[in-house]
Design a protein around this nucleic acid. Structure first.
Length: 564
RNA sequence: UGGGGUGUCGUCAAGUGGUAAGACACAGGAUUUUGGUUCCUGCAUUCGGAGGUUCGAAUCCUCCCACCCCAGCCA
């Protein structure tokens, strides 16, 4: 992995680990893990956790395991494990030979449960799900003990064995930890640790009909693997006493759980529950829709792994709930692409322009630098001819103050080409729409320079009409119009804030011929427009499709906006 | 009204008793064959509030306020 992107500011987790290391806790070992449940696609929030876990391990000379938390076969699928693996890899992280599954430990976990029963710390309970809920009490009222709580060890052992053997119906019995029904922490009121569920598991098939629950499986999986620091999100703080309880009762190696705040981002949602709705209810085209905050969506949109890693470093890690400004993510991708994306000319909304004094049939190959930020990227030739396309919005018949672009009688520069002056405007007689511009060029300004030192205020991008390639361009905007669509208090459902203009498809764009045969996934800066990426799903040699990753910063847009 | 957490600039976020880092955003200005990039400059007399301890408090103490999480046989 290339780590040019570590600015490494201190955070409370690094502090804890540094102190642990100083105290020689765990013999100076650091081992973390990223433990996704394979029931959905990874998103930028997961990237924060991935970067944290893999990053911190690398930083302290340790390792990070990839472990699938696959204890709920009815929700999980192999499709998700494959996508998760490829997303983590794409982000630039390597779990080596440490790919694990909680299901690898089912047998061991079963033995631990038996041990708990033998210690009188777990019992089989015949209460129904509803009864268990009633017995649990509420936030302010204590719970009451199950009538099955006092079963003998022998009976519990027998019943649990028969649960495993498939003698009982789904949901008819569970195994519970025997802790404290009047604990103010609901998690400690005899939590369920095994349920009967006849569902085919994507790895263990039909071998099991009982499956452990998160609280039981997670801490023990951490323990089995020898994890030193088990990082999870804030909502598990209340589960920590239970995490500790199992490990203490079973007297096994005891990792330390540390909670941090999950990522929130403006103008999007980052909960699997909500993302899955967007996919299933067709608000987006799929998990990898470029508007989605999923890793696969962002990849398709044109984000680089480096930019995402850098973003994750910049946002920091803390315990307070926060919502990071999308502008920071955009800053990170612009920063990266500015350095590495070749410049190219593409006209999104073409307006025909004829250079009256340019010889008909003549074509010149003009030299264009590929990236002013990196001369090493060389240059290319761009064909210039009498008939061109320029951007519609680069011409205004009646320009406002501070508009530097083309207007009747005005001279501007065509990037890498010539100075041109607008001498005529052709309009559709019916609609009044401008259909063509007539200009003259100054042959003395080849390359875009003028010997006489004459200055020109604007520089426009362009393509040669006859040589340019047709392309489809998809312009993306925020998925939501509200900065915090998650805020549904007394308001409508988050989907009410979906941005109706989050996707605009332009089908008559024109790009320079150099782009013929460009490979899917490759990224470019369209001069003066933004960064674009060839769509890896829909683009083909004959029909180029570009996704706009992000616009360039646009100070003219700001000025124009201020005016009105 | 039980328990667990959190409150430092518009947004993130350092700071751990010695007198408020940094980033994004924003606002000016310079350079520019991208109104891009880059470069300068500005942007918390104040750390949720009120008291207290101290020569000295964002950091310690007390009380108060606000927000988040927990009543799945989900994770």
């Amino acid at each position: 992995m290339t780590t040019t992107d570590s600015t490494c500011s201190p955070n409370f987790i690094r502090n804890i680990i540094a102190e642990d290391l100083k105290a020689n806790k765990n013999e100076g070992r650091v081992m973390t893990r990223f433990p996704p449940e394979p029931n959905g696609y990874l998103h930028i929030g997961h990237a924060k956790s991935i970067c944290l876990n893999f990053g911190i391990a690398a930083e302290y000379g340790g390792v990070c395991n990839l472990r699938f938390d696959d204890t709920n076969p009815s929700k999980e699928d192999i499709e998700y494990v494959e996508s998760i693996k490829s997303d983590v890899r794409w982000l630039g992280f390597d779990w080596g030979d440490r790919l694990f599954y909680a299901s690898d430990y089912f047998e061991k976990l079963y033995e631990y449960a038996v041990q708990l029963i033998k210690q009188g710390k777990a019992y089989v309970c015949d209460l129904s799900a509803e009864e268990i809920r009633e017995y649990r009490g509420t936030l302010t009222q204590p719970g009451k003990e199950s009538p099955y709580r006092t079963r003998s060890v022998e009976e519990n052992l027998d019943l649990f064995e028969r649960m495993r053997a498939g003698e009982f119906e789904d949901g008819s019995r569970v195994l519970r930890a025997k802790i404290d029904m009047i604990s103010p922490n609901l998690n400690m009121r005899d939590p369920t640790i095994y349920r009967i569920r006849r569902a085919e598991h994507h790895r263990t098939g039909n071998k099991w009909c009982i499956y452990p629950l998160y609280d039981f499986a997670h801490c023990l999986s951490d323990s089995i693997e020898g994890i030193t620091h088990s990082l999870c999100s804030l909502e598990f703080e209340d589960n920590r006493p239970l995490y500790d309880w199992f490990l203490d009762e079973l007297k096994v190696y005891h990792p330390q759980q540390i909670e941090f705040a999950r990522l929130n981002l403006t103008y999007t949602v980052l909960s699997k529950r909500k993302l899955v709705q967007l996919v299933e209810q067709r608000y987006v085209s799929g998990w990898d829709d470029p508007r989605m905050p999923t890793i696969s969506g962002m990849r398709r949109r044109g984000y680089t792994p480096e930019s995402i890693r850098n973003f994750c470093e910049r946002i920091g890690v803390a315990k307070r709930d926060s919502i990071v400004d999308m502008a920071l993510l955009e800053y990170c991708i612009r920063e990266d692409l500015n350095q590495r994306a070749p410049r190219v000319m593409g006209v999104l909304r073409p307006l025909r322009l004829v250079i009256d004094n340019y010889p008909e049939g003549q074509v010149e190959d003009l030299e264009a630098i590929n990236n002013p930020e990196d001369p090493g990227m060389g240059s290319r030739k761009v064909p210039f001819s009498r008939e061109l396309y320029i951007e519609r919005e680069d011409f205004l018949e009646d320009p406002p103050k501070k508009f530097f672009r083309l207007a009747p009688g005005r001279e501007v520069r065509l990037k890498h080409a010539y100075y041109i002056t607008c001498v005529g405007v052709v309009k559709d007689e019916q609609t009044g729409e401008i259909v063509e511009l007539h200009c003259t060029y100054d042959p003395e300004t080849r390359g875009g320079w003028s010997e006489d030192g004459r200055k020109v205020k604007g520089t426009l991008h362009w393509v040669s009409a006859a040589h340019s390639l047709k392309a489809e361009v998809r312009l993306y905007d925020y998925l939501f119009v509200k900065a915090n669509p998650d805020d549904e208090k007394n308001g409508p459902d988050f989907k009410a804030y979906l941005n109706p203009n989050s996707l605009e498809t332009l089908t008559s764009c024109r790009v320079e011929p150099d782009l013929a045969g460009a490979t899917p996934g490759s990224r470019y800066q369209f001069l003066r427009q933004g960064y674009f990426c060839i769509d890896s799903r829909d683009s083909s040699d004959g029909a180029l499709v570009f996704n706009r990753t992000v616009t360039l910063r646009d100070s003219w847009a700001k000025i124009a906006k201020k005016k009105e």
